[in-house]
Write a protein that binds this DNA or RNA. Sequence first.
DNA 1: GCCAACGTTGGC
DNA 2: GCCAACGTTGGC
Length: 148
Amino acid sequence: MKSEPITFSISHLKKLKRSGWEGVRNYQARNFMRDEMKKDDLVFFYHSNCDIPAIVGLMRVYKESHPDPTQFEKESEYYDPLATKENPRWFMVGLEFVVEFKEAISLQQIKNQIDLQNLQLVKKGSRLSVHPVPDKEAKIILKMAGLN
DNA sequence: GCCAACGTTGGC
DNA sequence: GCCAACGTTGGC
């Protein structure tokens, strides 16, 4: 999952311990959260749109898909006038902090890794902020992070 | 700040 | 249903 660190970084999550992943307003990303993410799944935290785009740590799903409350809040930048409580459009999962990597794994490093070229992240033009990471790739990333 | 790639909107 | 125009993402 991607987040701009200026908005919400792994340090924020570390401090909060747990947080809802609110503000996703892309259908494909929503569908992954709503349909694929299960309790206790591990999730990579990626910092996007910053000095060194990188995978910076791990989170875990503690709460499966539920409506993103910010879609109902008029004052929120994520407000969606077309969403109703009876028929919400946007969903999110709850995530808890697991670990911050001692050394972040930069996008450059990922691009240099021949075995990681199938990751959505490195596919040209991929902007999807939520997407699955297959086991094979996940293991490689964890190894790069010094975890097993 | 630039811009390629992608997603969404809305007229027709 | 097509597609041009526009908006957003995100690396560089």
